[in-house]
Structures are given as structure tokens and as C-alpha cells.
Amino acid sequence: MSAAMERAPLTAPAAPDRVSLSQRLARRGLDVTTLLLMPALLFVLALFVYPALYGFWLSLHPMNANGVFGFGNYISFFSDRYVYGTIFTTLELAVPVTLVNIALSVPIALRVRHLRKQRLLTTILIIPVTLGTVLTAQGMLNFYGPLGWFNRILMTLHVIDAPVRLVHNFTGVFLSQIVSGFPFCFMLILSYVSGIDPSLEQAASMLGAGPAARFRHILLPLLGAGLAITFCLAFVQAFSVFPSAVLVGSPSGPTRVIAIAAYHAAYEQYDYSMGSAIAIIMGGVQIIVVAIVMKASAALYRGPAAGGKG
């Protein structure tokens, strides 16, 4: 074999300078097919990256400094408790809501996966996801209002004597985030749970593991990465809550979330520079939370949730 190689003619066309540019690009994976990516890429660059960078630039040129470079927006954001407090207001709402939604979704998804007629339930639960927060808010104002059916039923059953206040406060926003956020979490987690090979649980039970042990040792570790991703995606929605915070919350007080602050600056005070600064801070907090969750879940197993081949 090696002898044959040595005897091979030395004129073999191996010279790299003979390879055309397109061939060299193709060798690195860049060819006409890759170019199909360009329109979408340019679009995202123009409508996402450029605005984000522009917003960042804008935020560093405060309006009240007549457009001169400076950190004035960020300084004034973090020096006014009423404004920077919105970060905590939003987190106080978004973190518990997301955790509650996930905590409710996991046991229900584990039960529903055994159901043969899943489709009906999942169809019912998809409705609030489709309707969105605005319609949910209007419905909640009717249903949970002091004269709404919910209070009437509780009063008829003598659970309460006077109507409970469930809208125009923190509770209202919390409930609205559960009504529209729970189905979202549930669907995501159901699809993760369904991805776990049922024979793994069967194998665990054959080895003597009861329901609790199966959950702790098999399901939870295999769901871990999925739960982290669900947390992130659900958290984005809860963290950027706007319509329900205005409509069923009390937007000047307990549910003055950061999105309201950003909107207020940009669209009511016409200070796009400050609005952009708050928007950037909002994105920053979101990215920090996502990074923490992903970091925390990095230690978990994240391969396929199936046993062996097949």
C-alpha cells in the first residue's frame, strides 16, 4: 500500500492554488445553499440588531443632556426608587408566577400523558394562549369583579361575606399571568414529559422504585433541562407583562412593572432616549435571569430522554 503511494506520479494536481474560490468556500460550508440564509439574516440585522444597537446608542445620549454622550439615563433610572423599583416589582411578580405555573404544570402533565384523549384537554388549554392577555384581562374584569360570577358564587356558598377584591391589584395581574401562562407552561412541559421513554419508568418500577422514587430519580433529572428552558420562555412572558398590569392591575402602584415605566418614558414623556435605556435594562435583567437558570441547569443531564437505541 505505502509502496504504491510512493510510486504514484508526482504530477498529481494537489496544488492548492488551483482550487477556485467557490470550491474553497464550499469546503468551509459556504455555497449557494448557505446563501439562502442571507435574506433572513439581513432582515434580522436590520430590524433587530440595528434597532437594538441604535437603542443602546440612543440611551447613552440623554435627551435632557441635549444628545451629548453620557450615562445620565442610567444614573437617573437607578437613583429614583419609583423607577428602579419597577425591576423588583416585575421580578416579584414574574418569578413567583413562573414558578407556580411550572409547579402546577409538572404533576398535571405527568398525569395527562397517560390519558388517551389528551387532545381535548390540550385544545381547551390552548385557548387562553391564543386569546392573549388583553382579552383575558377584559374577561377577568367581568368575572372576578366585585359583582362578577366568581364573587357571587363564593357569597352564595357562604365562603365569603363580602366580595373579595381580585382585580385592579397585584392579585389581578398574578391571576391573569396564571390564566395565560399556565397553559403555555403546561403544553411545553407536556411535550417534554411525552419525550421521556415510558419504558424507563417501567424499568425503575421493576427495580422496586415507587412513584415518589421514580419521580425523584428518573423523571426529575430527565426533565431538568426542559424545565429550565420552560422557565426561561415562560419568564420572558411574565417579565414583559404589560397589558394585564395596566388593565387588571394598578399601574401607578403595586403593579407598576418595568414595561410600564419604559412605555411611560418613551410614549408619554416622548423621551425615546430614556425609554430605550429602560428597555435595555429590561433586556439586561431578562438575560441575567436566563443566564442564571441556564448556568444552574448546565450541571443536569441534557441528552436524549430515551433508553438506549431505538
Binding site: 421513554d197 418500577s205 415507587g210 433529572p221 430527565l222 430515551a306 433508553g307 438506549g308
Partner: peptide, 20 residues
Amino acid sequence: LKPEDRGFGMVFQNYALFPH
């Protein structure tokens, strides 16, 4: 009895090894 209380061993067609 439930499977976990029978104490039998089982080898599954797809092995069902715990991937994690």
C-alpha cells in the same frame, strides 16, 4: 401487586437504561 412490589427483574427490548 404493583411492579415495584413483585421483585422481578426485567430486561427491556430497548434496554431502558437510565440515560442520565
